[in-house]
Design a protein around this nucleic acid. Structure first.
Lengths: 339, 339
DNA sequence: CTGAAAGCGCTTACAG
DNA sequence: CTGAAAGCGCTTACAG
């Protein structure tokens, strides 16, 4: 005999009472509660999660799907560490667990997610790296599983999301370039279909427009996320008829490659090419000249994500807001010498 | 009515038969099996995981505890991504899931683990960043939960582990320095208590000894994992009476800071100070002059870890080896211009 | 090959 | 305040 039944037998009371005592229900007398709690402690009792889940229909855990692609991972590990920490800090308050689901490189994204959705292992799911059209969102909506996303998407309806304020970053950067006299301003966007690429490009175009600069499609460069992409990018920049004098890069890591290639060409970031990066990943903090970039509170983003998903989960003892939480996380500029 | 009962009713057969058909048991006739499978597909049936777990006493999932400390995370994100991928590739073959448990910065390591252990959510657990004395190992042994670790420890008894071959790295590096004429060879070790620090230092001492070089404690530098630690280290190196001409660094990321400070001092890696790093994290791939370092197959390490943990899990249909898998993952040198 | 039934460990109306 | 009992959705000896 194990679990609750063991305690009940030990104390000569019913399992119902034990359960009520353990769960802090009001109906139990203080004396029996104390007895039960003491026995639980003494016998090292721990509730069986599966049995609770089955009886309650709730798991008190949230899944966070995370891609393991080398490409997707590159500029995002620090990012996710910080976000996870923020998510946990809120979930823990409500007794929810965070379980991260690393999607293997060769596993299909949708199938991978479906597996967890149908088995009912989670009360809610957090998705990252949303695509412009993201079938995972439809899957979750169809399954009726609460979810929130880190990143906007055009798929789906009324779900909560948190995203970085790409618009503000693009505007701030273009303004800064413009004020420094630049008129040929290039931008890089992700070469994969991730949604923030389009958002970033649109914001960049709009910022140019506000300064009366015509949009030149040859100044938009789709790149990978790694250093080598930056290295190659430099030659591409200078291969076009009227090369840019400034560049706004979405993946700060490629700055390392840009710096390197510029050095080989005996050009200097900030002097010969103005550069502004997106996020101040630790990777780029030691570049010389220092890279101008933006900084976001990953912890805050995580906290917001946690609140967003909790607000969708019925068993969460909080008021469910009418409209799902949707928020652009602010980024503040950290001026460097690169642009 | 839901789940298996719904299918049973729909088909006019018993739930037992449905269950057997779904689980591919031999006793079911081909015709009923097909009927059940078709109905399951049509109705979008998916087994309730909690109910299965309760009935079977097994969850078919493995937890991987991971620290979120900024410090611990620094040089390890790429590392874990690769390892996770390897773990999954093997676990998937046996229908096991990998769930990553990110430990919040402020959560106590042991309490965090205990929570998952007692609730019986996992059939097995993988631990990383083992400490020299690691109470988590005792916790798992006491709980009787199968586990494997990434990294050796002095705690515990007969558990399987995979670790990097620090000994070979230290020896190869010291040999290389020695053959290049260096006699004042410094080493860095982690400033936190992580076990591989002592292992690395011991291997370094032994390698020196083989070349008849006396061990000099002033040449051992305990450092953090970030670039700034490397930056500061350089001044420490040159502050001692008879400064080293070569240094072996355990955290390759600090090479970035070392390079930077050397540049400021107008010294050049490889010429004025020979440097060998540990792992070829993408972060350091673009250093100039290129950093000599070592490379390991993260995927292989992950695969070994998965095999190690599976071999301890009773429900796994494999033969349980007599002795737990213990393995040093090989690293091969990638010669660069730094040393 | 299939059904009826017990059991996995918990929760919770329902009586008392 | 407490007990007896049903139920969560599945699996699996045990009969037939």
């Amino acid at each position: 005999m194990r679990g609750i039944a063991r305690l009940a037998k030990e104390l000569g009371i019913s399992t119902g009472t034990v359960s009520r005592a353990l769960n802090g229900r009001a109906e139990v007398s203080t004396s029996t509660r104390e007895l039960v709690l003491a026995a639980a402690k003494r016998l090292g009792y721990a509730p069986n999660q599966a049995a609770r889940t089955l009886a309650l229909g709730t798991t008190r855990s949230v899944g966070f799907m995370m891609d393991l692609d080398r490409e997707a991972a590159a500029s995002s590990e620090y990012f996710f560490m910080g976000v996870f920490d923020g998510v946990q800090s809120i979930l823990a308050e409500y007794g929810f667990d965070l379980l991260v689901l690393p999607r293997p490189t060769k596993a299909n994204s949708l199938e991978f997610l479906r597996r967890y959705v149908t088995r009912g292992v989670f009360d809610g799911m957090i998705l990252a790296a949303t695509q412009r059209i993201d079938p995972r969102i439809e899957l979750l909506e169809a399954a009726g599983l609460p979810f929130a996303t880190l990143g906007r998407s055009e798929s789906g309806g009324d779900y909560p999301w948190i995203d970085l304020d790409f618009e503000a970053v693009a505007k701030t950067a273009v303004d800064r370039f413009f004020n420094a006299g630049h008129r040929r301003i290039a931008v890089t966007i992700p070469s994969d279909g991730v949604n923030f690429g389009s958002i970033f490009e649109a914001a960049y175009r709009q910022a140019l427009e506000q300064h009366g600069i015509d949009f030149d499609p040859t100044l938009v460069f789709a790149t990978g996320r790694h250093e080598d992409a930056g290295y190659r990018l430099v030659d591409d920049l200078y291969a076009i008829p009227n090369p840019p004098t400034a560049i706004l890069i979405i993946f700060e890591t490629i700055a390392i490659g840009i710096y390197r290639r510029l050095a080989e060409l005996e050009r200097r970031p900030g002097r010969d090419l103005a550069i502004i990066g997106f996020r101040d990943e630790p990777t780029v903090r030691f570049l010389t000249p220092t890279l101008t970039c933006f900084s976001a509170s990953l912890h805050d983003i995580g906290e917001d994500l946690a609140r967003a998903i909790l607000s969708r989960i019925p068993t969460y003892e909080g008021s469910r807001p009418d409209t799902p939480l949707r928020k652009l996380a602010p980024l503040s500029i950290r001026p460097g010498d690169s642009g």
